[in-house]
Amino acid sequence: MGKKKGFLTTEFYLAVFLAAILLFMAVAAREFYSINNLMSLLNSFSYILISAIGMNLIILTSNIDVSAGALISVVCLSIAALGKQGIPFAGLMAAAMVIGAVLSTLNGLFITRLKIPAIVATLATTQIFQGVLPLTVDGSIYDLPASFTWLAFDAKIFGIVPASVLICLIVTVAALLFVKYSRFARKLYAIGNNSNGARLSGIRVDRTVVWTYTIAGALFGISAVIIATAGQRVTTTMGSGLEMTFIAAVVLGGTNTAGGSGKILGTVIGAFILAMIAPAINYLGISPDWSDAVKGAIILISVVVGAAKYIKKKRVIDDPAARERSAA
């Protein structure tokens, strides 16, 4: 329980840090708070967060998914093909979630059935996802109909807030409740902390992990819809590289990649910080060339701060690196 308290403070620090940046932006670059910028920031925050929640669940079980970006590319292209036929938004969303879930379940099966470590298994599937895409479509799918871009162009709440934010809100609230109250989520923590122990206490570890991947896949699918429908053209590399951003959001939020600890709330703040770095830098008049460096520095600093607290608390006995190994 003492540990739980420690992680609460991680989120607290993060929130303070975020508030400090927001305040700083208010003083240094008022323009940052223009409606348009805020809304486009919220839009990218939405798709980062939705996927990051999925990634968070996976990381809780002490696994990882580096194929998320490639998977999103596959889903984007698939729904673009459907959207070309004029299938309405609801159909696209359903299709995206199903395709995402199926592909991600494959990852889960690979990992559990064949006992391949998650990072390597998803590394391999990344290459397959990436390779399949350009084969099935020659170039990009473009000139997509208005029904396809409905989410980005027309769906605005009160005429201002993009609907993607609403989707994100629903997913986030659901995830918070889910992690807090469901027995399934408790199993995730158990598996992440000690998968052998969890197995011996009657949890079907493999099955739970596969389901986690399935859920995460559906969430990746939702993100893919937001990303794909941003314009009238969908290319084969829409999601490439995003997986690292998702993982970074989770890590920044204080979740240990060794699994077993971490909260969705932290991920929410982490995703928000990552989403605002690029526009904030642009509004501050700094060349966007520095945005990646700032991103890296922020993650590194927050992780070091987190680790420093951790070391003070628990010397010797339990270091995360060791736990990672025993859990894997």
Binding site: V74, I79, A80, A81, L82, V102, V132, T136, G139, I141
Partner: peptide
Amino acid sequence: CSKTESGGASKTESAASAAPETGSS
């Protein structure tokens, strides 16, 4: 390269043909 069919991706066929492409890969 025999065109790999996979999941939903194969549905992109129609879209691919929308591009001015003769099909001779």
